[in-house]
Design a protein around this nucleic acid. Sequence first.
DNA 1: GTGTGATTTGTTAGCGTTCACAATTGGACG
DNA 2: CGTCCAATTGTGAACGCTAACAAATCACAC
Lengths: 329, 329
Amino acid sequence: MPRLEDVAERAGVSHQTVSRVINDHPNVSKGTRERVEAAITELGYRRNTAARSLVTRRSQTIGVLASELAQYGPANTLLGVEQAARDAGYFVSIAALRTVNREAILDAVRHFLDQSVDGIVVIVPHSETLLALAEVNAGVPVVAVGSLGDASVSGAMVDQKHGAELAVRHLLDQGHRRIGHVAGPQDWIDGVARAEGWSAALRAAGLEDDLLVVGDWSAGSGYDIGRKLAAERTATALFVGNDQMALGLLRAFSEAGVRVPGDVSVVGFDDQPESGYFTPPLTTVRQDFEELGRRCMDLMLDGIEDGQSVGTTVVEPELVVRRSTSAPV
Amino acid sequence: MPRLEDVAERAGVSHQTVSRVINDHPNVSKGTRERVEAAITELGYRRNTAARSLVTRRSQTIGVLASELAQYGPANTLLGVEQAARDAGYFVSIAALRTVNREAILDAVRHFLDQSVDGIVVIVPHSETLLALAEVNAGVPVVAVGSLGDASVSGAMVDQKHGAELAVRHLLDQGHRRIGHVAGPQDWIDGVARAEGWSAALRAAGLEDDLLVVGDWSAGSGYDIGRKLAAERTATALFVGNDQMALGLLRAFSEAGVRVPGDVSVVGFDDQPESGYFTPPLTTVRQDFEELGRRCMDLMLDGIEDGQSVGTTVVEPELVVRRSTSAPV
DNA sequence: GTGTGATTTGTTAGCGTTCACAATTGGACG
DNA sequence: CGTCCAATTGTGAACGCTAACAAATCACAC
């Protein structure tokens, strides 16, 4: 591999001049710049990252700490981060969490510090994460999805409470008065926020928020809950915490002969690509996860620039109406 | 941040001795080792990766080049790679491809070379990828999912042809004789392999492989195809290229009043977590993507060790029988 | 011409680590 | 008590780059 020195020799200048060219410094005459650039392409020179970051103390790398990467939301958020990072000239290093607990999180953070990343983006939707992060002093900017921007950790989030309100208001508008909620785990940021939105929208309409069941996000738990609800038949509409649970629920209803939306209306959350092909196609709340990822990276760049800035940004979700909801009979 | 020198001073030894300790060299007396280790923890020393890789010419980083990361398969493969890599003491850097073409692939490879990764794992299921990779001389080991281990590129793959045969044989065993295939795009390695397996199994049974339609993996395309097939009703069983298309197909059949499995049996491919909750629960072929990822990393470690070894490894898929298949009426 | 300031280029040192080699220590043995 | 060999420790240089400073060059006005 050719070095700065080799390029310099070929172009008939000093290595420092070459360095200036590749770093876009001003004060390099046009002629020299061209000669150097020619030498660079002729030799196929690429700058050595290790040497560079040894002296600049910057690795040009962002660490992404993630869990549930096989899920639609986190995966797309990662994609957004990656795109924005690469566009900004950063490398993206990942650490996936198999189990989410304090120790695993600290472990991954240490892993990133070993790599001397310039910043850490956290895509771990458990509330516990934010607590663990608060006690870490990473020494580099940290941006967490779902964080409200407290304790030196920046945050980007989808306004899920609002998304839940959209869903519930849609049901209210259709005339439903008994609207239940199949919530996600309450140790997840998203699970809590969506439940809050549901509750808030109901109370704003002067209704009780008493029909709450908690699942674990999986289609399986949606199915189990669906069987129970099919037997009880207390609500005329259900706001389900995510599309996967909604899928399981639809399955259970179908088996039990409960018609959707005839007997019960169902709204999901996330709008995965498949949700429009459920039986029936699912009304749900769309979140732009890629945008969320890009916003994270924006905050990150701010943080790297300023050193200590903490920011927040909110992405608005959107209701997608399909055939799983209608007026109650 | 403390340096080697600081630790050395504290422990009353030379920096080289400290280096020996952190690199687990023999020939360090027990006493010194303990003193050094104490100094390390006291000062909270962490070795500087940049300096290390400057001299060793190793970055301890694996680049993962991936597309379709939001999909179940690629995402889980990535997880497997990440786990194995971190266990082996490597960092994992990712580059996601938004569009798959020669230029984008070469771009991403260059990105990784800039980072001087020690190896590249490619999770891009398009046939084109393998061609593009063949012409690159990355200078580091390359392992590609789906590759057969040609042209200096190692490969890890699921035996999808076999998986397809399992699916078709299951249908044959149930007595079906008109078995169609809803294939994935034929510029995808997986799309081709599954179609080949379907074809091979049929011909082995002395049957025609003439009922072939090509989709694009999405639930939407499965739906469109499903509407067409519901009208035609030529096959008594369908082997669908993946679970998402199968979902769309089931939806279309349900709308058209075609009963599954009563009128038509349906088999999918992948076994995503939701597939057991489709209407009806889907018989499908399970692939262990995480294992695939781990195998990739095994090959990678071999490649890094030997310098030039090219290997192959095959993961066997497994048929999961659910309620979308039965004997024809 | 010559002085002056701005622009362009070169020189030197150092980032924190490992490698190759040199120096020291310790123990066994005659 | 000296010799020799192995085990342990230390020394200096190098990896490829950028930052800080020094030197050279140029343009322009007087």
